[in-house]
Design a binder for these strands. Sequence first.
DNA 1: GGTTCCTGC
Length: 616
Amino acid sequence: MIIPLILKLNGLFNTFGASSSVIIRVLTEDGCVVNQVVRENQVIVVVGETGSGKTTQLTQYLHEDGYTKGAIIGCTQPRRVAAMSVAKRVSEEMETDLGIKWVMPFYMTDGVLLRETLKDADLDKYRVIIMDEAHERSLSTDVLFGILKKVVARRRDFKLIVTSATLNAEKFSNFFGSVPIFHIPGRTFPVNILYSQTPCEDYVEAAVKQALTIHLTSPPGDILIFMTGQDEIEASCYALAERIQQLVSSSSRAVPELSILPIYSQLPADLQAKIFQPAAAGARKCIVATNIAETSLTVDGILYVIDSGYGKMKVYNPRMGMDALQVFPVSRAAADQRAGRAGRTGPGTCYRLYTESAYLNEMLPNPVPEIQRTNLGNVVLLLKSLRVDNLLDFDFMDPPPQENILNSMYQLWVLGALNNVGGLTEIGWRMVEFPLDPPLAKMLLMGDRLGCTDEVLTIVSMLSESDAAREKFFVPESDHLTLLNVYQQWRGLRKAREVRSQLLDILKTLQIPLVSCGMDWDVVRKAVCSAYFHNAARLKGVGDALYGLGYTPDHVVYHELVLTTKEYMQCATAVEAHWLAELGPILRERERERERERERGREGKREEERSCHFLP
DNA sequence: GGTTCCTGC
């Protein structure tokens, strides 16, 4: 077998970190040590650079040691594109080794593996699971950690290999009982890090200046600037273009070309693709990005990184039942990840627009894991179905705030998924079958009861489709019906169609018939209402804010409430007040109680009646 | 009239 070995001898028995008692073992050139250690340990943690080939190497060793005989090696990634591209790369590498029988590891997202535990709690079909990029701490990764820890205890033949960035390795090792940590050296170049001498007043301005300085005085190499969002990116690009233009017209010397390229996830795909095209001869690229360029996208040729030190993050507030999209200083780990982007093609430089003292004293070592800042409805449902009765006792590596768990349980109870003692109801058991957020699963099941599964199925599928085409097909009473309208009139929506057919399969297995209500769309609104009545609002003093709706309903339910500069209800549907009473009698009672509590307490006016802004 | 990045089928 001629797969180049990247695992190299890297010093014997180094201790890992000053406080650590864990010894880093060594992977030798011939790989026999790793084989032996995998043999001797059920769980190991592997520290290595992204793309160092560690998963390829590990699966090869595992194969050699017979772990693929009559069993499967599973390898998880946090993102689907990554899972697919790793699978592709590995299969290409395999093809070059003619005549060798190789059992491909099964690549998937961690979310897929998590859902597999629903059907097979012990994951019997897997002999080994490799969790790649576990340091990213996706919601699914964190839930899987707790579940796999139990699988490891129950199945002595089962192996778990967790790969991680340096910072998290010891924590991961401790979680699984001080398991061995391995180090695989990376292949990146050193990055020189320069800090701002004083705190920076306006990082957009500072970034633009720094980029110009690099462009005019530093050797060739592309620039990558990290900003928080679309607005700042547009402002930076505009300012950069303007300054370059000024220089061109005022300077007698020739100003080299600078190709200014914004990138963020909302940017249309054809514009996104531009960042991967090489710059014209003699020109330099300057990419201005959100944190999409931190992990999701990798551009080669970057030698200069300019880091604002900030990023946006969604934070769930259980008291308000609302997500807030807020700007935060990034963590040290994220800042280091950003800096590392300058060292992929050669020795690079990272300009941090904040002081070294801010880096050392004000930034968190790691980002707050997603599980601690999100609505846990799905997690609760899933764990309940795995017969984890007391969620507060579940072995989370970093437990979510108790308030988040209790609030999510309350929401599930309101939806009828949990009974009074916190067990799954019949509806709850059926909701688990759907890979959907609990309200959407509920909407489907209510569609069954109300005779409109066909319509509701489309609406649920469309919520995952882009909202770009929505405007033309506007239905005044309901954003949700607008989505149905879009789908019915323009059936070229690929993603929605795929999702729809897959959800339809699940309906079939649950023996729920596909029934249409024709044009009687009121029942559809009722189904929407039944899913969202915990997200209900009475409109008050909204004035001009409703101009897009055409008329003013008394009550609406909404898909999501997000706090940005203002509070925004996203995807709202007008409902009749008596529907709320019919469909959610328990809720109404609880709400009255809570309102009375609130009136007594100091907590706020804000929650009583939300004046709101509509997004068509 | 606006919002970082992801996921399940």
